[in-house]
Amino acid sequence: MTALATRGGPGGSSSRGLVSHLRLPSRRWRIAFGKIVHNDVRLAYRRPGALIAGFGIPVLLMVIFGELPAFHEIVAGFGGFDIYDAYVPTLAMFALAMIALLGLPMPLASYRELGVLRRLSTTPVPRSWLLASQGVVQLGVAVVALVILFTVSITAFGTPAPVSIGGMLLSLALCVAGLFPIGLLVAAVAKTANAASIIGRIAFFPMIFFAGLWLPRALMPHWLLDISNFTPLGAADGALQTSMLTGFPATQPLLVMAGYALVFGFLARRFFRWE
């Protein structure tokens, strides 16, 4: 029928109809999803702003802090650990927050701004795959950033190995589960990639303040710590610190993070606009 050569589809050339469509091997869809992820990875490193903020800056800060002698002094109230060790979870929060608040929403807002989400909804591939793909890519960036942060701090700067690895992994997983929906909500309310970047940055600073970037949580007055404990990054920082220094974290910070995951997951779902 057509001069354009067709590749033999897995469904065979004669098949039309919903049933044959459903019987298609999932391999075709895995390839399609893989291609979307591949292009998202390309976009992530060709537009490296979010990658630098979420990956480069925390790793750089970690190395600088590690080289500063003042950060290796033992300070009262830190439970026998130095300031540097207290900063490692904060920098992990820095990385996760930047990835969730800039890395995740900016490409999604850009897709909507360009009409890519709309274009995709005219193809056999569901447009929600662009969200899933971006989630996979940013999760990958987060995992690599965290592995580098913890490996370098433990091997090069004398941070003690975590006491509770399970608690640490659970804390990090819940932190991601709480932060990514916030990033999706940023993508939901931002009309353009630029707006997403501005909203993400505005949300970032108070959140990272409560994770102790400027004032370590150990030095916060009680009333401030009480507030911090109910912010996503404050709760995550507390749980992570406990896992690294003493043992499995308390229930409260874990519940706070789970609560953020649920509430913002609902809000992101409710308010996300495709067009």
């Binding site: 298609l24 390839i31 399609a32 292009n39 193809t123």
Partner: peptide
């Protein structure tokens, strides 16, 4: 920041019997 080939390859993979 995507190249023409990368875009075409991706959209081609969405279809059952795509064009070359």
């Amino acid at each position: 920041q995507l190249k023409v080939r990368e875009i075409l390859d991706m959209y081609q993979s969405f279809y059952r019997q795509p064009a070359d």
